[in-house]
């Protein structure tokens, strides 16, 4: 099952490293990363495979949320279907 991780917030050292480490610790495979600065905000979108993680998506979401809070950025993980439903016919 694929999910989309989005990271939005003020740019600083170590954001990608911290997010990738947390994902790796939970056995989440990163399939694709795009990263840019939009309207002054660091914006990263990752497609990830959560098929092999033993952690439920809701728990993973809480961990990422906690990391985001500690780094003062917004990190979320959402199942890919929601974006496919809204943007693909």
């Amino acid at each position: 099952m694929n999910a989309i991780v989005t990271v939005i917030g003020e740019d600083r050292v170590g954001i990608i490293a911290a997010v990738c480490s947390l994902l790796a610790e939970n056995n989440v495979n990163i399939l694709d990363i795009t990263q840019t600065i939009l309207q002054g905000n660091f914006t990263m979108v990752m497609a990830v495979d959560v098929g092999k993680t033993g952690v439920p998506l809701a728990a993973l979401s809480e961990k990422l949320d906690a990391l985001g809070t500690s780094m003062k950025i917004s990190i979320r993980i959402q199942r890919e279907e929601i974006f496919n439903a809204m943007h693909r016919i």
Binding site: I4, T36, F83, M86
Partner: peptide, 12 residues
């Protein structure tokens, strides 16, 4: 693959 613009528009 979904494009970044679509994903960010949903988030917004």
């Amino acid at each position: 693959m979904l494009n970044q613009k679509d994903i960010l528009s949903t988030i917004e």
